[in-house]
Amino acid sequence: MAQMTMIQAITDAMRVELKNDENVLVFGEDVGQNGGVFRATEGLQDEFGEDRVFDTPLAESGIGGLAIGLAMEGFRPVPEIQFFGFVFEVMDSISGQMARLRYRSGGHYNAPITVRAPFGGGVHTPELHADSLEGLIAQQPGVKVVIPSTPYEAKGLLISAIRDNDPVVFLEHMKLYRSFRGEVPEDAYTVEIGKADVKREGSDVTLLAYGAMVHSSLKAAEELEKDGISAEVIDLRTVSPVDYETILESVKKTNRVVFVQEAQRQAGIAGQVISEVQERAILHLEAPILRVTAPDTVYAFSDAEEVWLPDHKDIVERVNEVINF
């Protein structure tokens, strides 16, 4: 098996699907000759031609509209939004249009679109380049939101997303792009959308996380182990729809939960998941479910970035609170 970074695995997933299905099209700003600003589409235009992998004019709303329109001709568009902070420009295409196409046409049309975008903080980008806006999209029924945390899952989930007949917003945490390598099979394989993954087994507390925070949670779990606390770490992998089955199974075992998200505290995925868990398993809980989040401000694109972002120390602190409740 090849050792790949997450971004290599993502490129590989697109390569595999461009090969497998002639209807797959990859497009966006700078994705052609330049290979994308992060090089996620590196080499794809050379390999598949400008017909299949192409630059668009600089217009996010235009890119969303192109994707919906191309789907009408049976294509399977994989547009890139250069940074997810630019999603506001294409919000109508995603939440107002593609998410509703199946419903609006009574199933006559669907939108087999995978919107890829880098997101997440810690890489010193300017304003509106690092925001965790997954909660905005997750509020919209009709669209799935997938966030991988490892190279293996990035490839398998992206292939699943491209093959999915409903729209998927596929968010790639920038800090994970090149921070480590993992084993990735060379052939096509899928990882199921809507299924969480137990990244580490434990018995005292369940840490729920996704994206880069999975790794912070694993680091926290190691620290906690030194203090004799056994933490189970669950990677949501899909934040809409959420896999409550896996979560509840864990909660019933550990009876304590901390949700870790890089996004701000207000609204968002943590609030949603915690609410469901307490509705379904209140009698299994020994303590309130606590959250580790960023504060309720705009993203701190500055000196304040490191303090603003949640880290493993914050997680350890909160876990100790639920353990000692």
Partner: peptide
């Protein structure tokens, strides 16, 4: 250096209660 509390102070004209709590943290 810019601090998180600077960001908190600049979100609204008057700090809502939840941000007041976060500011203390």
């Amino acid at each position: 250096k810019q601090k998180v509390t600077d960001l908190i102070n600049n979100m609204y004209e008057e700090l809502p209660t939840h941000l007041q709590e976060q500011k203390e943290i």
